[in-house]
Design a binder for these strands. Structure first.
Lengths: 220, 220
DNA sequence: TGTCACCTTAAGCCAGCCTTAAGCCGCGGA
DNA sequence: TCCGCGGCTTAAGGCTGGCTTAAGGTGACA
């Protein structure tokens, strides 16, 4: 198992490395958002331990970028602040778990294990649904081989739907995916994006399930 | 979304109910391990909030039994003790998340959401009755392999019947399933839905037991 | 600083679903 | 054989929820 740890305190980082290594985990450690992005661009991890307060930004940004491009690698957040607001923000923005400092190394290791175990068995790089292909790594979408250009929001909506073709996603879930949920959009944004998406990728690709949400047509 | 909350403190239980209800979650509350087992035996939930310390035993026992029979319903543990040992024990015994009292209601709601969302899409029980297959995870129904499109209410009625093929369900039970167990509809709605269902999935699939209710024909 | 794409908001329209209600049918008991 | 009750069928009406369109705002980029 390979885990990326993003933590700017070198002492803490070392401690985590040792703690996880005892459980047979391979650890890559970086200290900044920039390095984290570089690591994510070049390697695949089974889980990521992510500090929120980093010298060059917030870990939430990195997390948001990942989820935005449909990278589902499990993320465990780490923060000095034990504030409820942070926890909610983190969980709703796509984190899989949360640990507040100070924490116990054994507990962290257990949670990393749990989170990675949960994730195992998923993760397909290229998502397919009928004639539509979505590549999270290049942020590109093709319909019957033809490339289609989508805006950022459109891409996120489509990614949310394609993560599990055939499965119904509620508008609320999709909204949670687009925003951190606490932005609480008071309108029919999702409907509008769905509408625009349908114009671009074909009118029948996204099915409406009245009262429940939307789903990708998985069968052709 | 339907959640079972197992908590013996009535005040806390009430608070949780209200907190979750605000997020559009239907909550069933019980106070003992015994009641929890009964609820689990008769109903299906999207997530379970489980107190560890209960008057007639530990929530861990209930969790253990569930996992023992391969019930993968996501479980969020709740306990007064904020001890690391408990956390690890809980996570490693198959819980999906952990919240220590005192906790914030918003946080609990966010975690329940996160845990249920994570779970959705795995472990499709796929209910069968004769040529009819109902997949709760994709909300889809097929008859002899052919997909059939049902409205939300029709789906609920069918799901209620297929939960236990061969078993009679009264109109009252089905109504309770469609609406919260109050709201008392003053008409023959269920009969109408049954009628429409029969038109869609085949006239013989649902059998009428005069004076008692309806049941699925389990055998072909 | 101006332009452009994109996102959000809002409003009106439309369709499908749910409920209600009324009349009919058939089973079972007298 | 007749009657009553429970279930079946049908159709109408209201309403919710989704679709569509358009306008205004905002941020990026030149």
């Amino acid at each position: 198992m390979r885990v990326l740890v993003v933590e700017d305190d070198p002492i803490l980082l070392d401690g985590i490395k040792v703690g996880l290594a005892l459980g047979g985990v391979t650890v890559d450690g970086v200290a900044t958002c920039a390095d984290a992005r570089a690591a994510l661009a070049t390697s695949r991890f089974d889980a990521i331990v992510l500090d929120l307060m980093l010298p060059d930004g917030s870990g939430l940004d990195v997390l948001g970028e990942m989820r935005g491009r449909a990278d589902a690698t499990p993320v465990l957040l780490l923060t000095a602040l034990d504030e409820t607001a942070d926890r909610i923000l983190g969980l709703d923005s796509g984190a899989d778990d949360y640990v507040g400092k100070p924490f116990d190394l054994d507990e962290l290791a257990a949670r990393v294990r749990a989170v990675a175990r949960r994730h195992a068995g998923r993760a397909a790089p290229l998502m397919l649904a009928g004639a539509i292909a979505l590549d999270p790594s290049t942020l590109s979408v093709t319909v019957a081989g033809e490339p289609v250009s989508l805006s950022r929001r459109e891409f996120s909506v489509l990614a949310a739907l394609m993560e599990r073709p055939g499965m119904v996603r509620s508008k609320g879930e999709i909204e949670d995916r687009l925003y951190g949920w606490q932005e609480e959009v008071e309108s029919n944004t999702v409907e509008v994006h769905i509408h625009n998406l349908r114009n671009k990728i074909g009118r029948t690709a996204i099915e409406t399930v009245r009262g429940l949400g939307y789903r990708m047509r998985s069968a052709t």
